[in-house]
Amino acid sequence: MFTIIAATIFLAAFLLAAGTIVGMFALYRDKMIAALLFEPIPQEAPVYRLRISRRRATPDARTPARPLPASIFAA
């Protein structure tokens, strides 16, 4: 008796799932076909023009550059 009840419940669940899948395919058939056939409009790749400007470091005329000590090169 348990087997018959379990088989009936299993069959009902299977038929419900199959019916849901078939119903979804029937309702959304046009949308699925349109999505598969859709070709996006080609767009031109954006062109980026960058201009980098840096101010040059100007040496200060008031403070002369000091020479490096000789001990730095003695290593």
Results as ranks from 00 to 15, higher is better:
residue 33 I to H: 11
residue 60 D to T: 02
residue 62 R to F: 00
residue 7 A to K: 03
residue 54 R to H: 13
residue 25 F to A: 09
residue 46 P to R: 03
residue 48 Y to W: 13
residue 72 I to E: 05
residue 70 A to L: 15
residue 62 R to E: 05
residue 60 D to C: 03
residue 38 F to C: 13
residue 53 S to N: 15
residue 67 P to I: 01
residue 45 A to F: 14
residue 64 P to Q: 09
residue 42 P to R: 04
residue 57 A to T: 04
residue 61 A to W: 11
residue 42 P to H: 03
residue 66 R to W: 03
residue 54 R to F: 11
residue 19 G to P: 00
residue 56 R to G: 05
residue 46 P to N: 06
residue 72 I to M: 11
residue 69 P to M: 02
residue 37 L to N: 10
residue 37 L to E: 09
residue 48 Y to K: 07
residue 23 G to R: 07
residue 8 T to F: 14
residue 55 R to Y: 13
residue 50 L to S: 09
residue 38 F to Y: 12
residue 15 L to H: 00
residue 27 L to E: 07
residue 42 P to S: 03
residue 40 P to K: 07
residue 65 A to W: 05
residue 33 I to E: 04
residue 11 L to I: 09
residue 45 A to W: 14
residue 25 F to P: 01
residue 53 S to R: 12
residue 45 A to H: 11
residue 11 L to A: 10
residue 12 A to C: 10
residue 21 I to V: 13
residue 64 P to E: 05
residue 53 S to T: 12
residue 49 R to V: 12
residue 32 M to S: 15
residue 35 A to C: 13
residue 69 P to K: 05
residue 5 I to H: 00
residue 12 A to V: 15
residue 34 A to I: 09
residue 30 D to W: 08
residue 56 R to Q: 09
residue 25 F to G: 04
residue 41 I to V: 13
residue 35 A to N: 06
residue 40 P to G: 06
residue 12 A to M: 15
residue 40 P to L: 03
residue 14 F to E: 00
residue 17 A to H: 06
residue 51 R to P: 00
residue 58 T to V: 10
residue 34 A to C: 09
residue 28 Y to Q: 09
residue 15 L to G: 06
residue 12 A to N: 00
residue 32 M to W: 08
residue 33 I to F: 10
residue 24 M to G: 12
residue 71 S to I: 05
residue 23 G to H: 08
residue 34 A to M: 12
residue 67 P to Y: 03
residue 61 A to D: 13
residue 57 A to N: 07
residue 27 L to T: 09
residue 61 A to F: 02
residue 68 L to N: 04
residue 50 L to Q: 14
residue 38 F to M: 12
residue 50 L to K: 11
residue 14 F to K: 00
residue 26 A to S: 08
residue 65 A to L: 14
residue 22 V to Q: 08
residue 60 D to M: 04
residue 43 Q to V: 01
residue 26 A to E: 11
residue 66 R to Q: 14
residue 50 L to H: 08
residue 2 F to S: 06
residue 54 R to D: 01
residue 13 A to F: 01
residue 32 M to A: 13
residue 16 L to W: 10
residue 1 M to V: 06
residue 13 A to R: 01
residue 29 R to N: 15
residue 62 R to H: 04
residue 73 F to I: 14
residue 1 M to N: 14
residue 68 L to K: 04
residue 44 E to R: 01
residue 71 S to E: 10
residue 13 A to S: 10
residue 74 A to I: 03
residue 70 A to P: 01
residue 50 L to W: 04
residue 36 L to K: 15
residue 63 T to V: 10
residue 64 P to Y: 05
residue 34 A to H: 13
residue 18 A to K: 04
residue 59 P to Q: 03
residue 68 L to Q: 06
residue 43 Q to K: 09
residue 67 P to G: 02
residue 52 I to T: 08
residue 6 A to R: 08
